[in-house]
């Protein structure tokens, strides 16, 4: 028996079919027209009135740190690991490799002079060590240290410091005394209002104090000295017999790992054109390599990996190596 349908049903059927075809066509055509430019613009977490909590409610809006006379001409902006490069471009890799979590920024302008403004950058790095890493890798060595925090300095137009897991930069549009005072006020207020866990970076005390350039510490989170297995390497700058030297220390998981890294790094240097030399340093298994007219000394004490990097003078390198070895010996004793 033949199946029959009404005219109304036919009309409705055509309408539904047309609607479905229109939707399908739209989807089909749009997938050929994928525009990363559009996707990207929607990713940015620019916040206005609906600013999200920066870190479990401890931060929210930076305007509460602004001293009198400074008003925010811009809304706060928040960036995450996916879009950090939108704000700081190629420098994002430095933060990402150190464990970056979120960035909160906001500009403040002087009420009486819109051309005088400053921008506050608060990087949540997840831990004190990671905040210290990005702080130390960008340290301006001709800058003046401040008592503001354990790690703090300022230049003519900027203030940089570490507070718990936060690395903070405050950058002014012009070098002006009044703005410099405002930067300090923002910094002090931030530190007093944001409670963080009191923590210390114990590795810094492993470096001998003799010949040490104060404040010249750094933490290289990855690929230190071009060797991919050198992670979490602390460095300190020294001046020995007129030679600038870099000493390094890293706490490893175990004594065997530290010893194995000595061998691996030596092999890496030799593979890249270095020549292993006989060291006069009285440290068991210490390795000395000459590479491209510089000297690398590397050794281990217990689970501590240590050495001297890129020294132009062999005697100075070995002298610093002895000092470092003695200091580590005291620590592990």
């Amino acid at each position: 028996m033949a199946r029959t349908v009404s005219r109304t049903e036919i009309t409705v059927g055509y309408v539904i079919l047309l609607a479905l075809v229109t939707i399908a066509s739209g989807v089909f055509l749009s997938q050929f027209r994928y525009s990363p430019a559009i996707i990207e613009s929607t990713v940015i977490e620019k916040q206005s009135s609906s600013i999200s909590p920066f870190h479990a409610g401890t931060l929210g809006d930076l305007s509460r740190f602004a001293p009198n006379g400074l008003t925010p001409p811009s809304t706060p902006e928040i960036y995450n690991p996916e879009n950090l490069s939108d704000k700081i471009n190629g420098k994002a890799e430095l933060y990402l490799s150190a464990g970056f979590r979120r960035l909160l920024t906001q500009r403040f302008a002087a009420s009486d002079n819109p051309g005088a403004w400053l921008e506050v950058y608060v990087y949540n790095m997840g831990s004190l060590r990671q905040a210290f890493a990005v702080y130390s890798m960008q340290r301006r060595f001709d800058a003046e240290e401040l008592e503001l925090a354990d790690f703090a300095y300022h230049t003519e137009n900027a203030l940089f410091f570490v507070h718990g897991p936060y690395y903070v930069e405050i950058i002014a549009s012009i070098g002006q005394k009044k703005l410099a005072e405002s930067m300090l006020a923002v910094g002090r207020d931030f530190i007093s209002k944001i409670q963080v866990t009191r923590d210390r970076i114990t590795e810094l005390s492993l470096f001998p104090s003799e010949h040490l350039n104060r404040g010249a510490f750094a933490l290289l989170p990855t690929d230190a000295f071009g060797f991919h297995r050198f992670t979490s390497i602390f460095t300190a700058q020294y001046a020995v017999e007129g030679t600038e030297l870099t000493a390094f220390v890293s706490r490893r998981e175990s004594e065997s790992e530290a010893a194995e890294l000595v061998v691996a790094y030596t092999r890496f240097l030799v593979t890249n054109g270095g020549t292993e030399l006989s060291s006069t340093v009285e440290i068991p298994q210490a390795k000395l390599v000459e590479i491209m007219d510089t000297f690398e000394l590397v050794f281990s004490r217990s689970n501590l990996l240590a050495g001297v990097h890129g020294a132009e003078n062999r005697e100075a390198a070995e002298k610093l190596g002895r000092l470092l070895g003695r200091k580590l010996q005291e620590v592990v004793r």
Partner: peptide
């Protein structure tokens, strides 16, 4: 000279 491409300080 340093801390590029953003810089931030005159000392860069």
């Amino acid at each position: 000279m340093t801390n590029g491409p953003t810089g931030g300080s005159i000392s860069d």
